[in-house]
Design a protein around this nucleic acid. Structure first.
Length: 534
RNA sequence: GCGCCUGUAGCUCAGUCGGAUAGAGCAUCGGAUUUCUAAUCCGAGGGUCGGGGGUUCGAAUCCCUCUAGGCGCGCCA
């Protein structure tokens, strides 16, 4: 007998039942996961919304619906609370029917994206030095976001844009020359806006030692820095589908200029883009008085190319110093003939690093910064990612490196990973005792409070994924993982998995496996490893 | 001066985009292990959601205003 495939999202299943009694469900309708179990498991705000439309009391509507919805066997209880909430408690049989889907490797995958092509561009650091911690944050976030979008069926692509031309690159080269002169005992002065980091001194040494011909210095410099950045990215565990170079778009700048023509004017020898027509605070130079194109010209060419490649949504993750850049980009994109709303800019706010409560001021150009490499070496890529992803991107983030190390024992990443490792150990023990997994364990015996609570957390996973993806907010997964781990640890303390009772053992092993799969799926979206043992 | 972000427990932060008695971790205090990993569990205390006004059935959330902090404001990126 075939039945239509049931939706794995609890919220959708409940909504479907409400739909049988309410013809038009307002878009603001929400099924929320209730944290406090005394109210139930999920709640609906439908009565409030209908009250406004029908001009009736919310409690009356809620009570009517309650009577109608109570008859469905998926609920063990439906109640009305507050001024008109409808609260649902899920029936045990229903929980069991849902958990039986949770040992699938793809559990939690829901369709939101419909294979829409979406491009996520992040980090895109200038190839002028080592990656820093803000870029680490953008990196951890972008990587997790791409994974999350793919999980909900977007055709998501990650891209890193390398600004390998322009004034900054020349400045970098001049700074290198100064360092080389330094070694050759010639007069040397790093330009005022140049790069003072010691890595350039080290590179200068390398160039001299390897007797690199002078006409290759600039290329050697750039390629070395780019290679090092990529190396750091790999060590941090980030994956990019494409690395795109700004130089690729030089030919296309002309076409951008052509399109922008009616929104440009000459002043003081420069060519200006009338971005104030698009809510920018001032107009912007696109060709300088000495004939150089500014950054935005290439960037517009690049974004034009993104749209040409068929992406319908572009997400850019920028540092806080770029917020003033958004208006002109949106303006430019509009003039190019695309919908500026299709470019979504997420600002990854600043990261303030402290060491022993003292702020570390970071400026790449001044050469004072803690690199991503250094932080990673101190606290490890997993803990660093987890930490950076815990905060929503708009939140300014501060953490003390000394503290992060000192409290690493209580670090939430270990708490979650420990749950995974614990389960692994249990399963290993079961295998050693030749307890074969039952394909159809009798799950009805999972009736204790901690078991029920754990099941509820597990089957909520698809809803959590959907909500996180919808708002581009991977940080919800962190809080979910901590809750899930809490539910598991509580279960572990309360009941024994491997006992003399075969039925009980198999049912509990099954629950462990489901928990483990969910932890694994969530961690892998975040880019954090799931260790077999700790 | 203009723009962006932030202000929630002692500390670091969530709060499913307007919903119920505002939550978690850390820290503090008090308990738990002869059994599958104590990197664990159970419990307690701790709040004028920066202040004020407005919108409505209902506001930490939306609007206005004040205030505090951070960042940005280049013919750099």
């Amino acid at each position: 007998m075939t039945r239509p495939k049931r939706d794995i999202m609890i919220s959708r299943q409940i909504t479907d039942l409400i739909k049988e009694h309410v013809a038009d469900i307002p878009v603001q309708h929400e099924i929320s996961f209730i944290q406090d179990p005394k109210f139930g498991d999920y709640s609906s705000n439908i009565a409030f919304l209908l009250a406004k439309i029908e001009n009736r009391a919310a409690t009356d509507i809620a009570n009517e619906l309650k009577d109608k919805l109570s008859k469905y066997p998926i609920f063990s209880n439906v109640s009305v609370a507050g001024r008109g909430f409808i609260n649902f408690t899920l029936a045990r049989d229903f929980l069991i029917s849902q958990i039986s889907a949770a040992d699938q490797n793809d559990f939690g995958k829901v369709n939101i994206g419909n294979q829409e092509k979406i491009l996520v561009e992040y980090i895109s650091a200038n190839p002028t030095g080592p990656l820093n911690v803000v870029q680490a944050r953008a990196g951890a976030f972008g990587n997790a976001l791409v994974n999350l979008l793919r999980y909900v069926n977007y055709d998501a692509v990650s891209e890193y844009y390398i600004n390998n031309t322009g004034t900054q690159i020349e400045m970098l080269y001049e700074s290198l020359l100064a360092r080389i002169n330094e070694f050759n005992d010639k007069p040397s002065l790093i330009p005022e806006n140049g790069y003072h980091g010691l890595y350039l001194k080290e590179l200068a040494r390398q160039i001299l030692d390897n007797k690199i011909p002078q006409d290759q210095w600039q290329n050697y410099l750039l390629e070395t820095i780019i290679a090092r950045q990529k190396d750091t990215i790999n060590k941090f565990g980030l994956h990019f589908d494409n690395f795109v170079r700004e130089s690729t778009f030089i030919p296309r700048r002309e076409q951008v200029l052509e399109k922008l023509k009616s929104y440009t004017y000459r002043k003081d020898g420069a060519l200006w883009f009338k971005s104030t027509d698009f809510k920018d605070s001032e107009d912007r130079v696109i060709i300088t008085a000495n004939g150089r194109p500014t950054y935005i010209l290439s960037d517009l060419a690049y974004h034009w190319d993104k749209f040409d490649r068929g992406f319908t949504t572009l997400i850019n993750i920028w540092g806080p110093d770029h917020h003033g850049y958004i208006a002109r980009m949106h303006g430019g994109i509009k003039v190019l003939g695309f919908n500026p709303e299709r470019l979504i800019v997420i600002i990854a706010q600043q990261v303030t690093l402290l060491r022993n409560k003292e702020k570390i001021v970071m400026s790449k150009r001044a050469g004072e910064f803690i690199t991503l490499e250094e932080v990673m070496n101190e606290i490890g890529p997993d803990a660093l990612k987890f930490f950076l992803l815990m905060r929503r991107p708009s939140q300014h983030l501060e953490f003390d490196l000394a503290l992060a190390q000192k409290t690493s024992q209580e670090n939430p990443v270990y708490y979650v990973q420990y749950a995974y490792a614990r389960i692994n150990s249990i399963i290993k023990n079961a295998l050693e005792k030749n307890l074969s997994e039952s394909t159809k364990p009798d799950l009805t015996i999972l009736e204790s409070d901690t078991e029920q609570a754990l099941i509820k957390m597990i089957i909520h996973f698809p809803d959590l994924i959907a909500a996180s993806a919808k708002h581009f907010e991977p940080h919800h997964l962190i809080y979910y993982l901590i809750q899930l781990a809490t539910a598991f640890h509580a279960f572990y303390e309360k009941v024994r998995v491997i006992t003399d009772d075969a039925t009980e053992t198999q049912a509990r092993l099954y629950l462990c496996q489901c928990t483990q799969k969910v932890i694994q799926n969530a961690l892998s979206i975040l880019g954090v490893s799931a260790p077999e043992k700790m």
